[in-house]
Design a protein around this nucleic acid. Structure first.
Length: 439
DNA sequence: CATTTTGACGCT
DNA sequence: AGCGTCAAA
């Protein structure tokens, strides 16, 4: 099958203007909106709370100032910040149910959607917007005098490499007064074919920032939620920029600043390099920073990694990312899961059936809601589970095609899949004990 | 016993 | 098809 990633084909690598909109400590904001009395207080969202106060999955900025972080238990947060409000993810069917936050994320996406057809939801609280068309239109209006940037649209706007946004605007203004000011450097640094886009890059990103300001104002006005945004020529850079200034701020990553910025940017900050592959890249190349990758040729990188990853690294290290913003509003899959650590391991058939029932019930509700909203039905179901086999964690997944289904059939299908996949499902000699505990 | 619960995508 | 990786709250 062809790769799922679609790449843009266009005259230049710098023609697009892409936004990444990221909600600030989103689950906390959802709780603060629901409970106005919690506003302006340190707050965190936890899942479950009997064991050491629950696990923290979101922390607002007042609580971060006290040293509270994700990963901590609720009790640790209380130690650091006794006045903190700990909101629990709702427990429905004896498990954490994050539907409330999915619904809130959809509410935000409904606002974002009005600004472009090219909206790609990247997670419950993040979306990429390709606003190239709007920027092109405003460029034309600007040339005819029908549109002008208003400074008040750029409050809370930053540009990487500039101490404040005013300096960035001044530079662009000076360039209008003297169009050949930067041109010698542009001609030395970029491909001939890219020069028209390079010459317009800064002003187009600045217009993009004004659009981003409007997007964020609309989200705030219509949902009450605050967000941060990155403005750049592609997804990787927009995502990177969005994290530079938070909360409730937006950041431009100017084309000409990318190289010097990358010189001190740890490799792992780039989306896709935050895990094992990023570690391998650093060890293999003997480097720490993104800018150090440019010292290697594309062929060298392909030899050290593989053809695809080598080319990807070569381009990304130069700030080039041709991956398209692929329109997608609804998720491709709907799933739920629960862990059963330690003494909660599922060891008996009855318990397994019970939890398959709970999970199937949630899935069934969400599939029904999805059918009503989006008029689609699930075609396939996948059961995933982790077993304890001789003290080792062994993950498995099995799938089956779905035609008609309801909660009962989902339970039956999932149990059948697990049974069919397990040589010794029940412990020999027992009617009810699983041979391998499910974690 | 202990982040957990999601979701997308790449490799083989 | 099944497994693994990466990322977000």
């Amino acid at each position: 099958m062809a790769s799922a990633r679609i790449h843009v084909s266009m005259q230049s690598k710098y023609d697009r203007v892409v936004l990444l909109v990221d909600m600030d400590c989103f689950f906390c904001q959802v709780e603060e909106k629901q409970h106005p009395e919690y506003r302006n207080r340190p707050l965190a969202v936890v899942q479950y709370n009997p064991w050491r106060g629950g696990g923290i999955i979101a922390v607002n900025y007042a609580a971060r100032a006290k040293g509270v972080t994700r990963h901590m238990r609720g009790d640790e947060a209380k130690d650091l910040c006794p006045e903190i409000v700990l909101c629990q993810v709702p427990n429905i069917r004896e498990k954490a149910d994050t539907s409330k936050y999915r619904d809130a994320g959809k509410e935000v996406a409904n606002v974002l959607q009005r600004f472009t057809k090219l909206l790609e939801r990247a997670s419950v609280d993040e979306a990429y917007l390709d606003i190239t068309e709007t920027v092109n239109h405003r460029m034309q209006q600007m040339q005819s005098g029908a549109f002008a940037l208003q400074p008040q649209e750029l409050v809370n706007t930053f540009a990487v490499g500039y101490p404040n946004i005013g300096d960035f605007v001044n530079k662009i203004t000076n360039r209008f007064a003297n169009p050949y000011m930067d041109d010698e450097r542009f001609q030395m640094s970029y491909d001939q074919n890219d020069l028209p886009a390079v010459r317009q890059s800064d002003i187009r990103l600045l217009i993009g920032a004004s659009v981003a300001g409007e997007v964020r104002a609309a989200v705030k006005k219509e949902t009450g939620y605050e967000c941060s945004a990155g403005i750049a020529h592609n997804k990787i850079l927009a995502k990177l920029a969005a994290g530079m200034n938070k909360p409730n701020k937006q950041t431009i990553l100017p084309l000409a600043e990318t190289a010097s910025f990358f010189d001190s940017l740890p490799v792992g900050k780039i989306k896709g390099l935050g895990g094992k592959f990023g570690e391998v890249v650093c060890e293999t190349l003997g480097i720490k920073f993104m800018g150090q990758v440019v010292k290697f040729t594309e062929v060298e990188l392909q030899r050290k990694f593989d053809e695809k990853n080598g080319t990807w690294l070569f381009n990304i290290s130069r700030g080039i990312d041709m991956e398209a913003v692929t329109p997608r509003f609804y998720s491709k899959s709907i799933g739920c899961c629960k862990k059963f650590p330690g003494r909660n391991n599922i060891t008996g058939l009855k318990t397994l059936q019970h939890w398959l029932g709970e999970l199937s019930s949630e899935i069934n509700d969400r599939l029904e809601k999805d059918f009503i909203e989006n008029n689609r039905r699930a075609k396939q179901m996948v059961v995933q589970y982790v077993q304890d086999i001789d003290g080792e964690e062994v993950a498995s997944s099995r799938s089956t095609a779905l035609k008609d289904y309801d909660q009962e059939s989902i339970v039956r299908f999932s149990l059948d899949l697990i049974k069919a996949n397990t040589k010794t499902f029940l412990r020999p000699g027992s009617e009810s004990a699983l041979n391998n505990a499910i974690k």
